[in-house]
Structure formats: structure tokens, C-alpha cells
Design a protein around this nucleic acid. Structure first.
Lengths: 219, 219
DNA sequence: ACTATTTTTTAGATTTGTCTAAATATTAAT
DNA sequence: ATTAATATTTAGACAAATCTAAAAAATAGT
């Protein structure tokens, strides 16, 4: 199936909206994609003709099996590129979305498989979202957050699930990024805040709320 | 300047044709880009309006300074991506052109600068073509071919300037690829053919014609 | 120098993806 | 159960990039 960039963007957006509500509406999608409802209707007809979604006029729509598989392959490409941009090129993980948005439409299947191998088959992107495998299967790995990690164990930051500027500022301040090695010195039982030690820097304390957003893995 | 993929492709093709003949003609470009002369004329008007080329009806055309700079930035992107695909993802260097053709249109400047740094500022792509720097400057590095290299010195293959299937077959047969380490055992003065030793394989002899197409650098 | 051939351009149509404005269907409110 | 409000679709227009067929300009052959 040969899809245009536009078609791929619609499919991806429908997929994302479906994660929240089983059925998607024209206005919701128009808002998501920053376009007019009339344009959405046009594209829906096209995707319906291509048999990528179930669609009845005025009654909403949803991806069928084929559409879903395509959506997953786009999500896969997007997340692999995000992972590449952060871990290999050194981008901040709040800056990679737009670039990955372009890269995800490069169509070579071989490219993505080789990229996946080069990155050593990562399971989640820098935001902690799982990366579907070649067959579109998503392994929902139970992510280990700093809030759960054993004290005195060395861990490596693998992703951060909160993209707010405030969170980013905090992480910058404590020198925490993807790939950063750190140790939990102690956990205070009163509020479950944790004291962590980031490489050579002085130990610092982060709240449970923050700890829950930082995912790590053992080295 | 915000250019469409199509506009970028025209500019790149005009640039390439200009390397061979100072002035480019409509039919030449139509052939290069696999389109109709009428389409070329349409695009020429557009690029002329955008002040990227000198163009007089029926008299041919050529990129002006602005157009040239843009062309060089596209060439830069293309060659950096080719280098990435071969050296990092392990593609054969005869397979990367089409993929780089897509990647080169991803527009982030920061992406290319970070990619360049990640690749350690390569000077030539896997075909031996020089990579323009950020300012569009091309450093024509005098490439060292196997035909020129001193005997008994270890060298590493950096690029191959002949992309024919025959050449590729030959190189595969002798286990030569980008990054391969080899040594010139001897050079026969009769026909300047050279005996080379590729890592653990038995020594083999290649003609001067072949040797001239394989560029190397000292380790 | 004149005609024939080739090259280039114009005119007008087509496709893709978008838009506005109007029409139609659905849902909510009394 | 009507009417009002909202959501969705249709109809028709538009821009970008392409095309075909025909016209115009340049070049080549004798």
C-alpha cells in the first residue's frame, strides 16, 4: 500500500485518538490535525475507499485491521527516530517530536529494520512510549520508575513521561537526561520522596511525583 | 526560504547538470528528472520568480548565487545521510541513493548539524563525493586511491567511485567494503596492477583501473 | 536563405489536498 | 415533540505539480 504523507498523518492521528475513545469524530480529528472538518470528510472517503477504516456517514469511524497495522508501523517509525535523535544525536527529548514527524514518512522498510538493529531494538522511546515491533506488536513493558527502584542500586534513565517545560527545567537543573546513571540513596517513608545521586554532582531530593515520571533500567 | 520537495529536486538536478555543462537546457533537465519538458518550464518560471536562477525564455538557465547555496545544502544533506546509512546502518553503498533522496528533504537545520557531528564531520560520502560544509564550501580533498598508495602500508577503504554492478560484484568477491582494512603487498610495474591483502583472506590482484576507483586513507 | 527538424513554451486539463459556504443530519433543550 | 444548537457532509473553488496537444522559437541541413 502506497500512502501519501497526508494519508499517513490522518491514519496516525486516528490511531492516537482511538487510544482515548473507541470511536473518533470528524471534529475531534479536524482539531487534532489542525484542519477543517470538510477536509477530514474528504480524506475519510478516500481512506474508506482504500479499505483502511470503517466509516458510516454521520456515525463516526475507526481504523480496521489493515488501518491499524499501518498506524502501528508509522508509530514504530516515529518512535525509533525519536530514540535515535535523543540517544545518538544528543537532542533534548522535548525537541524531537517535529523532526520525527518528518522522518517517519520516509518509506523504506529496510531503513527502519536496520535503524532498529543499530539502536539495539529499544523497547520504548525517550518519552516512555512503547515501540511496536516489526509485526506491529506492542510489548507493554512494565516500566520501572525511580519511585519503585530499590535504594542503593545504580540505574540508568531510559525515558521521561512528562514533557512539561517545568519538568524539563527540573531535570536540567539536576543534570538528569536519557542515559544518565544515578543511584537512589534513600527513600523517605513520610512522603516517599527520594534522595538521588547523579554521577559526580551533590545528592538531591526529588518528590514522589517527579520520581514516578522518570523511568530507569538496571545497568 | 521554504521550498517544496519538488522545488528542491529541481534545484538539485540543475546543480548536478551544471557540473557538466555551464548552461542547462529544458530537455536535459526533463530527462534527468524524468518528467515532461512542459513541467520543467512551469517549474523554471516558479524558481525564477523566487529568484533562485537566471532564466531567459528559449535561452537556457542556471542557478544564481542563492540557488547555488540552496543546492549545496541539499547535496550536503544527501551525502551526510548516505554516509550515515553506510557507516552506521550497514547498507551496501549502492543501495543508499534512493533512501538518501527522501531523507535529504527533512528540513531541520539542527538535525543536519547534529548528524554531521555524530558522524564526526566526514569529508566525503561513500562514493567519494565531497560533502559541502555548513557554509556550502566544498573542500576538494585529493583522494588517495589504491593506485597511488605506498606498498606495505595498511590503509582503510573510505569510498568507491564506480557504482556499476560489475564493480560491486568484484568488490564483494574480494571482500572489500567501506571501512575494510587492507594492505598493498606489491605493485607490478608492467601494468601497474597491485596485489592486495584483505584482512584474513588470501592475497589477490586487482588491475590499475580498479585500483584507481577505490579510495583509502591511512589509519 | 529557406525549409525541416528539434526544442521550448503556452494553453488548457487533471489530480491531490485543501478551503468556504451552504445544506443536511444529529443531538440537546425546553 | 418541536425547535435550537451542533456536527457532518456536499458543492464548488483554489493552489501545486503534473500532463497532453498545439503553437512558437531556435537550430540544422541543403
Amino acid at each position: 500500500m502506497n500512502l501519501s504523507v497526508s494519508e499517513e498523518n490522518y491514519i496516525k492521528s486516528i490511531y492516537h485518538l482511538q487510544q482515548q475513545s473507541e470511536i473518533v469524530t470528524t471534529n475531534l480529528l479536524a482539531n487534532e490535525i489542525q484542519t477543517r472538518p470538510a477536509s477530514v470528510t474528504d480524506m475519510l472517503k478516500k481512506l474508506h475507499t482504500k479499505k483502511l477504516l470503517e466509516y458510516e456517514k454521520y456515525k463516526g469511524f475507526r481504523l480496521n485491521a489493515t488501518g491499524n497495522k499501518i498506524a502501528l508501523s508509522i508509530v514504530r517509525r516515529h518512535r525509533l527516530w525519536e530514540y535515535f535523535l535523543v540517544t545518538k544525536l544528543g537532542f533534548e527529548w522535548d525537541k524531537v517530536h517535529d523532526i520525527a514527524e518528518e522522518l517517519e514518512h520516509v518509506s523504506s522498510i529496510e531503513l527502519i529494520e536496520k535503524l532498529d538493529a543499530f539502536l539495539n531494538y529499544p523497547q520504548a522511546d525517550p518519552h516512555g512510549d512503547p515501540i511496536p515491533d516489526v509485526n506491529g506488536k506492542i510489548t507493554v513493558i512494565k516500566q520501572l520508575s525511580i519511585a519503585d527502584v530499590q535504594v542503593k542500586r545504580n540505574v540508568i534513565v531510559s525515558s521521561v513521561s512528562n514533557q512539561s517545560p517545568e519538568m524539563l527545567e527540573l531535570l536540567k537543573h539536576y543534570h538528569i537526561g536519557i542515559g544518565t546513571e544515578l543511584k537512589v540513596n534513600m527513600r523517605l517513608s513520610f512522603d516517599r520522596s527520594v534522595e538521588i545521586k547523579v554521577s559526580k554532582y551533590a545528592a538531591c531530593v526529588i518528590s514522589e511525583q517527579v520520581a514516578k515520571n522518570i523511568f530507569v533500567h538496571h545497568d
